[in-house]
C-alpha cells in the first residue's frame, strides 16, 4: 500500500513481531499517532506496549503533579524526588517511555481533555481516555466522531482487580483471515453515549456484571461530583441505593448487580498491578489491530476481573 520500506534497523529491532503481523502492519504502525490521557497503572502498561510495538508517536496528557499516589502500579515513575519534583505525571512518564524505544516520538501536551478542540484531536489516529468521568468520555468521543478522518477511540478504567475497555471504531473495515482466504469484513460501532444508554432489560442475562456495576459507579461519581475512582467503602450505602434506582428504572431485578461486586469496586482505591498488565496488554493488542487493519477487533466492551480470571468481550450496541 505504501511504498516505503522498513529500515535495516527497524527490521532488526522488530524482527520477532514482524513475524506475527507482517512488514505492512509494521509500516502502518510506524506512521500512526496515538494520544493517551490519564496515565495510571493500566495506561502506563499500555504506553509501554505501543512504544515497544513501534508506533510513530505517542502524545501524553496528564497534568497531575507527581505524588506518591501516582507511583502505584506505575513503573514509568521512578521514586526519585529529584527526578519528579515539580513535574507532571505526563512529563515524567514521557522521559521513561523515550528510553524504551528511541524510534518512537514521545511528547507531552497540556490542557483539559474536555476543552481541547476538534483540531487538536485531528492530529491523532488513536485516542485513549484513561480514568475519566462519564461526561468527558462522551464529549471526547463526540468530538472524535465529528472529524472527517476516522479516529479509533478507546476508554479504559481499572478499579482494584477489575477493568473495563470501551472501543469505538465507528465504521470499521478489516481483513479477516480464514483458513483458505482473507476476506474483508465491516463492523459498525456505537458511540460511548449510545453504548452506555442501551436499556438493560433486553441485554442477555449472562452479560458481564461489570458492565452494569461500572455504569452505577460512573453515575454515582457524576452525581456526587467525584473524580473518577474517588470512592470509598463509606459510599457503599449510597451506591447501593443508586443501583436499586437504576435497576428499577431499567425494569431488571436488583440481583442483576451483586452488592459484593459494587463493594469491591468502591473500596479499591488502588489498581491491582497484575490486572493493569492484563488490561493494558489487551488494550495494546487492540490498538495494534486497529492501526494495522489486521484481525477482528474487540467490539465493543472488554472486562477483566482477577477474582474469576475471565477476560470477556461484550457487544452492547444501540439496537
Amino acid at each position: 500500500m505504501d511504498g516505503e520500506e522498513l529500515t535495516e534497523q527497524e527490521t532488526a529491532l522488530y524482527d520477532r513481531q514482524i513475524r506475527v503481523w507482517g512488514a505492512g502492519a509494521q509500516r502502518r504502525l510506524s506512521k500512526s499517532h496515538v494520544l493517551v490521557s490519564g496515565i495510571k497503572g493500566t495506561v502506563a502498561e499500555f504506553c509501554k506496549n505501543i512504544v515497544l510495538a513501534g508506533v510513530g508517536s505517542v502524545t501524553l496528557l496528564d497534568d497531575r503533579f507527581v505524588t506518591s499516589e501516582a507511583f502505584n502500579a506505575n513503573f514509568l515513575i521512578l521514586p526519585d524526588e529529584n527526578a519528579y519534583v515539580g513535574k507532571t505525571v505526563a512529563e515524567v512518564c514521557c522521559d521513561s517511555l523515550k528510553e524504551f524505544n528511541p524510534m518512537v516520538h514521545v511528547s507531552v501536551e497540556k490542557g483539559d481533555l474536555s476543552t481541547l478542540g476538534v483540531e487538536f484531536f485531528n492530529k491523532f489516529d488513536v485516542v485513549i481516555i484513561g480514568y475519566s468521568s462519564r461526561a468527558t468520555k462522551k464529549a471526547v468521543n463526540e468530538t472524535c466522531r465529528k472529524l472527517t478522518k476516522r479516529v479509533a477511540f478507546y476508554t479504559v478504567d481499572c478499579r482494584g482487580s477489575c477493568g473495563e475497555i470501551f472501543v469505538d471504531l465507528q465504521n470499521y473495515k478489516y481483513a479477516k483471515k480464514n483458513p483458505d482466504e482473507t476476506v474483508e469484513c465491516e463492523l459498525t460501532f456505537s458511540s460511548f453515549e449510545e453504548a452506555v444508554s442501551v436499556p438493560w432489560k433486553p441485554i442477555p442475562r449472562r452479560t458481564a456484571k461489570l458492565y452494569f456495576a461500572t455504569r452505577v459507579i460512573e453515575l454515582f461519581e457524576e452525581t456526587e461530583g467525584r473524580k473518577p475512582g474517588e470512592c470509598s467503602v463509606s459510599d457503599l450505602p449510597s451506591v447501593l441505593k443508586l443501583k436499586k434506582e437504576l435497576c428499577e428504572g431499567n425494569s431488571v431485578s436488583e440481583n442483576h448487580i451483586p452488592d459484593s461486586l459494587l463493594e469491591r469496586l468502591v473500596s479499591s482505591n488502588s489498581e491491582f498491578p497484575p490486572a493493569c498488565a492484563i488490561i493494558g496488554g489487551i488494550l495494546g493488542q487492540e490498538v495494534i489491530k486497529a492501526i494495522s487493519g489486521k484481525g477482528e477487533p474487540l467490539k465493543n466492551f472488554f472486562y477483566f476481573d482477577a477474582e474469576d480470571g475471565k477476560g470477556v468481550i461484550e457487544d452492547i450496541s444501540k439496537a
Binding site: 513481531q17 513475524r19 506475527v20 497484575p274 498488565a277 496488554g281 493488542q285 495494534i288 480470571g309
Partner: peptide
C-alpha cells in the same frame, strides 16, 4: 524463530 510480541507476554505475566 518463535513469533513474539510484548502484549501477550505482559498479559501472561499478569496471570
Amino acid at each position: 524463530i518463535v513469533h513474539a510480541v510484548a502484549t501477550t507476554n505482559a498479559i501472561i505475566a499478569g496471570l
